[in-house]
């Protein structure tokens, strides 16, 4: 039951990348999972594939604290072009931060679907689809 066609995991922690990939695969909500180590890579990907709906993900799990370009910067950049994308992309922030300020801030991005705190669990994944 592939409910979600394509999922992007954006996180610099290799362990977490592995955990998330395995968990999502186990849960069977998607077989098409791509992993990015920082937001810049995703941004570049989006820019290259702006007009290719089939290449764009349906869901992004975005970490906040990353080198080179962090989650906040990505959200700022994404805000600039998200309306021009040919399809709906769901974004969930997935972070270890339990700081209320971070939650508040994420809420100010209207296009973000939710704020999830690590660790990822079956329950969380089941709510994604």
């Amino acid at each position: 039951m592939n409910l979600i066609n394509m999922i992007f995991i954006v996180d610099d922690d290799p362990i977490h990348q592995q955990i998330a990939k395995i968990m999502i695969e186990r849960q069977g909500i998607s077989n098409n999972i791509r992993v990015f180590s920082d937001a810049q890579e995703v941004l570049d990907y989006f820019r290259e594939n702006t007009n290719v709906p089939e290449a764009l993900p349906d869901l992004i799990l975005l970490d906040l604290n990353m080198p080179v370009m962090d989650g906040w910067e990505f959200l700022d950049e994404y805000a600039g072009f998200q309306t021009s994308l040919p399809k709906q992309v769901k974004i969930f922030v997935l972070t270890s931060s339990i700081d209320e300020k971070d939650k508040e801030r994420v809420r100010s991005y209207k296009f973000v679907s939710g704020y999830l705190t690590k660790p990822l669990s079956k329950e969380i994944i089941s709510h994604l689809s």
């Binding site: 922690d13 977490h16 270890s96 931060s97 700081d99 690590k118 660790p119 669990s121």
Partner: peptide, 20 residues
């Protein structure tokens, strides 16, 4: 800030891995 970002992350991993 450090605890939230730098200690919680690996501990979250621990949790997840333990469950798995």
């Amino acid at each position: 800030h450090i605890t939230s970002h730098n200690l919680r992350a690996p501990i979250a991993n621990l949790k997840a891995l333990m469950q798995m």
